[in-house]
C-alpha cells in the first residue's frame, strides 16, 4: 500500500523518465543491439517500473499514474521479452545464399503441392482444348493467343517485336509489378484455408496447358520453347513459390499440430515472408528477361540460343534451391 502517492511519484519519476528515454532511444533503431551495461540498466529499470505498477494497482482511484506506468511497462516488456532476430541486422548475402534456399527446402511439400496442382491444371487445360477447341476463348483470355499459333509465329518473324524497341524497360516494369501482385495474391489466398491458392494454381496450370498444347499441335514447339523458356524458367517457379508460401500459411491455419492457432501462425510467418521476398526477387529477373529477350524471335535471335539460355537458368535455379546453403544435419522439416 502506498502511503503518499505524491511522494511516491516524485521519488520514482526520475527512474521512469530514464526508462522512457532508453526505450525511446531503442525505438529509433530497430536493429540496434544494446551494450551489456545498458541492457542491465534497462532490465533493472523495467523491473522497478513493474514493481511500481504492482504497488499502484492497489490504488483504484489513480488512473493517471497507472496509465502512464502501464504504457511504460508495456514498452519495456516488448523490449525485454520480445523475440529478437538472433542474427541482428539483416544480411542480404546470407539471406540469399542460405535463408531462402533453406526455407524453400524446409517447406518442399508445399512447393510440391503447388506444382502438382499446376500440373493437373495443365493436363485439364490441354485436354479441354483437345475435346473442345472452342474452349480456347475461355482458357486463353489474351488477345495475342486467340489466333492460330502459326499466324502469330509468322507475325513475330516479320518483326512485330520491333514494336517494343522503344518501351522494353517500361514493359519489363509492368511485367515485374503485375506478376508480383499475382504471386502475392496467391500467397495471401492461403488465408482462405488454401482454397483460393488451390484454385489460382489450377487455373494458371489450365491456361499454361492449353497454350502449350495449342502451339505443340500446330508444330510450333521451337517457337514456344524459345518464347516461354527464357523467362518462364524463373517466372513459373516464382509463382509456384508464391503459392508455396500460401500453402504454408494454410497449413498453419488448418493445424495438425497441438499448438494453438496463434503459435502455429507465428511459427510460419518468417518462412512465408522469406518465400514471398524470394518469389518477388525472381520475378524482377524474369521481368527483365521477358522484356529484353523473350520478345525477340528468329531471325533476330535464334531459338536455340533462347532455349539454351532457359535451360541454363532452370538448371542454375534447381541447383540454387536444392544445394545452396546446405549444411549437413542442420535442416529439419517442420
Amino acid at each position: 500500500m502506498i502511503v503518499d502517492l505524491a511522494k511516491f511519484v516524485a521519488q520514482e519519476k526520475p527512474r521512469w523518465e530514464r526508462l522512457d528515454q532508453m526505450l525511446h532511444a531503442i525505438a529509433q533503431d530497430p536493429w540496434r543491439q544494446l551494450p551489456v551495461a545498458e541492457a542491465r540498466e534497462l532490465e533493472l529499470l523495467y523491473q522497478r517500473a513493474s514493481a511500481d505498477l504492482a504497488r499502484l494497482a492497489t490504488y483504484a482511484a489513480e488512473p493517471e499514474a497507472r496509465g502512464y506506468l502501464e504504457n511504460l511497462v508495456a514498452r519495456g516488456h516488448a523490449e525485454i521479452h520480445g523475440a529478437r532476430d538472433a542474427s541482428g541486422r539483416f544480411r542480404p548475402v546470407n539471406w540469399f545464399a542460405r535463408t531462402l534456399p533453406q526455407t524453400f527446402r524446409r517447406r518442399w511439400r508445399a512447393f510440391m503441392l503447388a506444382s502438382a496442382l499446376t500440373f493437373v491444371g495443365a493436363i485439364f487445360g490441354g485436354a479441354a482444348l483437345v475435346f473442345d477447341p472452342q474452349a480456347k476463348e475461355v482458357l486463353m483470355p489474351f488477345s495475342h493467343l486467340q489466333g492460330e499459333p502459326s499466324e502469330r509465329v509468322a507475325e513475330e518473324r516479320a518483326g512485330r517485336s520491333v514494336e517494343l524497341d522503344d518501351r522494353k524497360a517500361q514493359f519489363s516494369g509492368m511485367l515485374m509489378t503485375h506478376n508480383t501482385r499475382v504471386t502475392l495474391t496467391a500467397m495471401a489466398l492461403g488465408m482462405t484455408w488454401g482454397i483460393g491458392t488451390l484454385i489460382l494454381m489450377f487455373y494458371n496450370g489450365a491456361v499454361l496447358g492449353a497454350v502449350v498444347l495449342d502451339y505443340v499441335t500446330a508444330g510450333e514447339t521451337p517457337f514456344l520453347l524459345g518464347w516461354l523458356l527464357p523467362h518462364g524458367a524463373v517466372e513459373i517457379p516464382a509463382m509456384l513459390i508464391g503459392a508455396q508460401a500460401g500453402f504454408v500459411l494454410a497449413g498453419a491455419l488448418l493445424g495438425g499440430e497441438r499448438r494453438p492457432l496463434a503459435a502455429r501462425l507465428r511459427a510460419a510467418a518468417p518462412d512465408v515472408v522469406t518465400l514471398c521476398f524470394g518469389a518477388a526477387l525472381m520475378l524482377v529477373w524474369a521481368g527483365f528477361v521477358e522484356a529484353f529477350l523473350s520478345q525477340y524471335h528468329e531471325p533476330v535471335l535464334p531459338y536455340v540460343v533462347k532455349i539454351a539460355f532457359g535451360v541454363v537458368e532452370l538448371a542454375a535455379l534447381a541447383w540454387y534451391l536444392s544445394r545452396s546453403g546446405r549444411e549437413r544435419g542442420t535442416e529439419v522439416n517442420p
Binding site: 529478437r84 532476430d85 488465408m191 482462405t192 483460393g196 510467418a269 515472408v273
Partner: peptide, 23 residues
C-alpha cells in the same frame, strides 16, 4: 500495431500483416 502477446514486433509480422492487404 503491437504483437498480441505484448512482445516486440518482428519484421516478419510487419511484412505479413501488410502483404495480406492483397485480400
Amino acid at each position: 500495431v503491437v504483437d498480441a502477446r505484448g512482445l516486440r514486433l518482428t519484421f516478419a509480422q510487419v511484412v505479413l500483416r501488410n502483404l495480406l492487404r492483397f485480400i
